[in-house]
Nucleic acid binder design. Structure first.
Lengths: 148, 148
DNA sequence: TTCTAACTTGTATTTATTACAATGTAGAAA
DNA sequence: TTTCTACATTGTAATAAATACAAGTTAGAA
């Protein structure tokens, strides 16, 4: 676990104020593995009785905006559905929340070859999904179609 | 848009019963782009007044389990956080909801080269995130560490 | 045509997250 | 060190996505 001093420095360097809550949140983030907010709240509450869940949400948002931590696995907080069951990836723009399909058999082949050679210890790989994060160059939904 | 007949056949072939609600949900899925449940509910409600949101959720779950459609962008419905701001990917097991970090500079290099050559029309790519879906071979959290 | 498992509905809950007003405090400036 | 204020925290309440469940309905097999 990182020393408190170092954590404090990181917080301070980003322009945020150092508070016991923030330090504890970062410590929890390091101790737990990809925790959800609720787990962090539970963990931090042990050290800081009377902690408000709102504080944890605020803190997480603040840390994310300063790029000290990341949100993972999803950018939007809701489930989305896809009518196309064939294997494909997604282009996604966080600003607009727009998502387009991306087909690229050449890339799939490349990845397949790569992971056939590379063995990930302790993990049986079944499927590789890519999220291509970026920005769409115009608003027209049909402009990026089946990206060949 | 696919003809109703074909949609009906797909539903039937999977062992599910053909209902107006299910056909309308699939049509909505094709019309809308990666809709969230709420958008589907709104769309389908126009054709089927008195539609229950529960039906849409049930239908989506049924279609997903039959692999007629997919859930995208997230498998769990909650936000998760990551203390490591460095670029890395994730190993994820849907069954256990376990997620591990995955570092692979060689792969990143490969992808960087690939996308430098390949220009995605209408999209300015900023970051490539991989979700490696599969199963962990044992329950020990520390067994898959910094996967070299 | 009958019958039953499968499906839909509607209400009530649960749970994650956000809004907001009041209070408290970190840390810059005096 | 003390003061001061913008930034943080708290707590309550509201919102919204998703689920549970009991009751009624229907697809489609027999």
């Amino acid at each position: 676990m990182k020393p408190v001093k170092e954590i404090a420095k990181t917080i301070s360097a980003s322009g945020l104020k150092i508070t016991p809550q923030r330090i504890a949140v970062i410590q929890a983030l390091e101790k737990l593995e990809h925790p959800r907010a609720e787990e962090i709240i539970r963990e931090v509450s042990e050290q800081i009785p009377g902690l408000s869940p709102t504080t944890v949400y605020n803190t997480l948002d603040a840390l994310v905006s300063k790029k000290i931590i990341r949100k993972v696995h999803t950018e939007a907080d809701v489930m989305r559905y896809d009518a196309i069951p064939d294997h494909h990836h997604h282009l996604y723009c966080m600003q607009s929340d727009r998502m387009d399909d991306y087909f690229d058999p050449e890339l799939d082949k490349l990845l397949e070859d790569y992971f056939r050679k590379k063995n990930i210890k302790g993990f049986r790989l079944k499927e590789v999904k890519l999220q291509l994060m970026g920005e769409f160059e115009n608003k027209d939904k049909t402009s990026v179609e089946k990206n060949a």
